[in-house]
Each structure stands twice: as structure tokens, then as C-alpha cells.
Simulated scan of single mutants.
Amino acid sequence: MLPEVSAIDMAGKLALPAFKERHNHLDKTYLSLGWKACRPVSKLSERLALEAAELEVLAESVEQRASAMIERHLSYGVNHIRTHVNIDPFIGLRNLEGVKKALKKYEPYLTYEIVAFPQHGLLEHAEVPDLLRQALASGATILGALDPAGVDQAVEESLALTMALAQEFDVDVDMHLHDRGEVGFYTMDRWLEMVEACGYTGRTAFSHAFGLAHLSPAMQTNFAQKLRAQQVEIMTTIPISIHNQLIPIDTLRQQGVRVSVGCDGFYDSWNPNFSGDILEKVQQFCEYTGKSSERALRESLGLITQGITPLDANGQQVWPVVGDEASFVFVEASCSAEVVARVPQNRQLMHQGKLYQASSNLHVPSK
């Protein structure tokens, strides 16, 4: 005899795997504050200087702002967030503490990872390595890194210290790599050599990885095979810029490299324009790369579901099956391809059997 279970009538809506936001910055958003456009800059160092100038003020509202961003993600069907959190000499661990409080409030509806992120460099400020150690001992679950060439201006030293810290705390590494061209490619290639030498396979993600964009197709394929061998995941966002070529997402996936798409930041000092809808990013990817067939559209959904799609390459249903986690996004659509192409706005998230119900007072800071 079957045990009694409660049932929820979803009125014929389509069930999809819950979405995963794998590249985000909960501590940076201006959400819940008044309108503020960002100031144009000509290089990364200028952007970082502008960000540093407002860190102290923004730290006071980090829990409130992070909560507002989390609620936006939940409303769009996201039940997992990997967030980078600034760990820097200007505010220490204050952003980390605020983000932790925000995430804690929403644990019934999502899982999360916290990346201790040295946004203002690992080497320039002597206190940063110890601050990262404190963060990893205080709730951060992943070690971040940023442009060993462009920001730290010392590729070997920066990579070596990053590996030493990762091994010290036995944590994965998520490395932001904006550097383009040969230096960006060299940084990734050198890190893979360290990973192999240190036995750290399966512990790395490259965020952005812009250095892959302008390689020849043959080099892209060969390097994708290296990434797969070391089980490196690529975290990117769409679009990068109309002035710059996208990284070779299709080539990477064809070679067995897992690629995840995230919103990065939205409505912050870097960019005021993003909606925060991760599904919109998938639609943009399909538009930019000319994907329009039923199969191409539905397979692109895997960019935001950790590769899980309802149908396999042959069109046979492979998800959900008995025993799968009861985490879904319910939408008004006939199939997953239509969802990618049309981006329905009314969505209902279920996380581990629990329906998310938005509340107008959830993002009030905790006492």
C-alpha cells in the first residue's frame, strides 16, 4: 500500500530541471537601492578603483541587496547559486558575513556555493592571502582567483600561491580570467600543468576564459581536450561584447567540457543593464550562434541545468525518472525548445518538493 502523499495540481504546466546560476556576485548588486548608472572606464584597473571607492558604503546594506538578488533568481527558477564574494583589504570579511546571512534565509529554496574572491588582487595587498584563509575558515567553500597577469602582474607567483592556498584548505578553485590573447591562454595552460603536477584534477573552474576566444579552431579543440582531461568546468556569461568574439562554447561542449552560463553581476557598478534572468542568457546564446532547430534549442538548456535536459540527443525522455530530486521549474510552454526561444516570464520554482512563494518582507536584514 502506497503511503499518503500530498499532490499539487500544476494545471498542465511544463516541468523543467531547476536552473543553476553558476557565476554570480551577490555582494555587488545595487538592487533594493535607488537607481544608479555606472561610470564608463577604459580598462579593468579603473573599474576596480571605482568599485573600491564605494565598498565601505555598500557593505552596510550587503545582506539586504544580496537578498533582493536571491529573490530575483528564485522567481526566475534558480535553485542553486555559486556566488563570488569580495575578500579584500578595504572591508575584510564584511561582504562574506552579509551574504551568508542572506543565503541562510533562503535555504528552504536553494543550495549554494560561496567563492572567496580576491577582486582587488592576490599579491598587491599583503594582507589578502590571510584574509582568504579567514574566509575559507568562515564559510566560503571555494577559493577564487583573478587575472594573474592583468591584475597581479606575476603569473607564476600568483598561480603558485593560489594552488598553495587551495591545497591548504582542500578546496576547489574558481579562477576569473579576463585576460585575452596569448597571456590569457598561457595562464590557463600553465595552471593546467600545475593541476596535473599537484594531482588537483577535477577541482578547477575557469570563469570567463576570454583567452580561448581568438585561438584557431584546431587550437580550441586541442585545448578543450586538455580541459576535459583535467575535468575543468567553464563558467561564462552571454553576451561578452559585440566587439569581442564569444568563447567557443560549442567546441568545448562537443569535446566533453562542461560549460555553465551565469548572469555574472547585474545592476551594479560594472553594468546597469542585465535583467538577472538566466534563461534569457541561453536565448541570447542561441540567437548569437544561429541555433534555431528543435534539438539545438533544447540542448542549449543544459547550459543552466548542469547538463540535465528532459530529452537526449535522439529525442528520448531521460528526465525525470524515479529517484530524481524533486526540483523543477514549471512554465507555460509545450516543450523545452519553446522555453529557450520564447523565455516565458511566469515561472514557478519547486526546490526539493517545496514550492517557492515570494514574500515582500524576506529581504529585510536579519537582527
Rank of each mutant, 00 (worst) to 15 (best):
P3L: 06
P3F: 12
E4S: 13
S6A: 08
I8P: 09
G12I: 03
L14S: 00
A15C: 05
F19P: 04
K20A: 13
H23K: 11
T29G: 05
W35H: 06
V41L: 12
V41M: 07
S42P: 00
L44Y: 06
S45I: 08
S45K: 11
E56A: 15
E60C: 06
E60A: 08
E63N: 04
Q64F: 13
A68P: 11
M69I: 12
I70Q: 11
S75K: 10
S75N: 09
Y76K: 15
N79Y: 05
N86G: 07
I87N: 14
P89V: 10
R94E: 09
K101G: 08
L103A: 07
L103E: 10
E107S: 09
P108Q: 08
Y109D: 02
Y112L: 03
E113W: 04
G121A: 13
L122E: 02
A126Y: 08
L132Y: 03
L132M: 06
R133C: 04
Q134Y: 01
A135S: 02
L136H: 05
S138Y: 00
S138P: 00
A140I: 00
I142C: 09
I142S: 02
A145C: 05
A145D: 08
A145P: 00
P148K: 06
A149D: 11
A154P: 00
V155P: 01
E157P: 04
S158L: 11
L165R: 10
L165H: 00
E168R: 09
V171H: 01
M175S: 00
H178Y: 07
D179Q: 10
D179S: 05
V183T: 13
G184W: 07
T187Y: 08
T187W: 02
M188G: 13
R190F: 11
E193T: 06
E196M: 13
E196S: 06
A197E: 12
A197K: 12
C198I: 02
G199L: 08
R203G: 02
A205L: 14
A205M: 14
S207L: 02
A209P: 11
G211F: 04
H214Q: 14
H214I: 10
M219I: 14
Q220N: 01
F223G: 10
Q231I: 02
V232W: 00
M235F: 06
I238K: 06
P239Q: 15
P239A: 03
I242Y: 03
P248W: 13
P248Y: 10
I249K: 00
I249A: 07
D250M: 02
R253H: 00
G256L: 06
V259N: 03
V259D: 03
C263F: 07
D264I: 03
G265N: 09
D268P: 03
S269N: 07
F274T: 13
S275N: 14
G276C: 04
E280T: 07
F285Y: 14
C286R: 07
G290Y: 02
K291L: 12
S292E: 13
R298S: 06
L301P: 07
L303Q: 02
L303P: 09
G307I: 12
A313E: 15
G315H: 01
V318G: 09
V318E: 09
E325Q: 09
F328Q: 10
V329D: 02
V331T: 11
A333H: 01
E338L: 05
V340P: 00
A341Y: 04
P344F: 13
P344K: 03
R347K: 12
L349C: 13
H351D: 06
H351M: 01
Q352M: 10
K354N: 06
L355H: 05
S360F: 14
N361S: 12
L362W: 11
P365K: 02
